[in-house]
């Protein structure tokens, strides 16, 4: 066992290194005292200071967080339902609806949603239109993961619950949800990062005069990748990390409490 574990660890460390080396560069250059991301000149916090004085950027970050949280919430909810329904009921239409947005090039989804919002719904573009658009393309990602989790799972446990007279809701809440939880969390994380990072669909579905982070960053990058952009990225990661850690801590505390209760 130990030899295979060692082998796994080295492969995993390589993968993590692959993921984190570019990131290290991003973070490092956010403290670099040079406008060009080219070589190390000296340490500075100037870019963070500039960032905190950039009202538009802060507003954009806030807007994007709201969008990402709302979109990932609704996509996780709908995607989990879709994943469950597809697995359980052998549906014909739903799988196509769920998985085709994943198969569709982003730009097409962006343009078609824009046409739809403007010419069919006559909606004023804004946060709502972006949230809807992001939800649409995230649902598929969540559903795929949830379904992969359910596939090949022992069905007898659900049967047993039903035999014991559990209602569908009870079965879901007490059996299914805990079992698929890792997939739900993974799907939520994925939707969040997809949403906060999306440029193409956001560009098309955003309204007038509302700064959104990916657009703002794209605007800055078009001129040049300045360390200020790196600073934004670093802060975003930090914020995400903190949010997830707090959620994890709360869950752990909850679990202890629940564990105690269950023990009685």
């Amino acid at each position: 066992m130990s030899r295979s574990t060692r082998w796994l660890w080295s492969a995993a460390i390589l993968a993590y290194a692959f993921l984190y080396i570019p990131l290290a560069i991003v973070v490092m250059y956010s403290f670099n005292d040079s406008r060009l991301n080219a070589e190390w000149v000296g340490f500075t916090l100037f870019w963070y200071e500039a960032l905190l004085n950039n009202k538009e950027m802060l507003l954009a970050a806030r807007n994007s967080l709201i969008i990402a949280l709302s979109a990932s919430f609704s996509a996780t909810l709908l995607g989990t339902m879709a994943g469950l329904a597809i697995h359980r009921y052998k549906l014909k239409v739903l799988p196509v609806l769920v998985f085709t947005p994943v198969a569709m090039p982003e730009i097409l989804l962006g343009v078609s949603l824009l046409l739809f919002f403007l010419q069919v719904l006559n909606l004023t573009l804004g946060m709502i239109s972006i949230i809807i658009a992001h939800t649409t393309f995230c649902i598929g990602f969540v559903a795929v993961i949830v379904r992969a989790r359910l596939q090949g799972m022992d069905e007898s446990i659900f049967e047993a619950a039903r035999d014991l007279g559990a209602s569908p809701w009870q079965t879901f809440r007490l059996i299914t949800l805990p079992l698929i939880m890792p997939a739900v969390v993974a799907g939520a994380l994925m939707s969040f990062t997809l949403s906060i990072d999306d440029f193409v669909i956001t560009f098309f579905t955003k309204g007038v005069g509302e700064p959104i982070l990916p657009i703002q960053i794209y605007t800055m990058i078009k001129v040049a990748v300045t360390p200020e952009v790196n600073a934004v990225s670093t802060l975003l990661m930090l914020l995400t990390l903190i949010m997830i850690i707090i959620a994890g801590k709360l869950e752990a505390r909850n679990m202890e409490a629940a564990g105690g209760e269950a023990g009685k």
């Binding site: 990131l23 560069i25 993974a186 990072d197 960053i217 952009v229 990661m237 990390l241």
Partner: peptide, 21 residues
Amino acid sequence: VLLVVLPFASNFLIRIYAWMI
């Protein structure tokens, strides 16, 4: 799992530009 997803909370284009370096 968090460590796998975390890099993706930063901006996509920034990460690509890091690869340029």
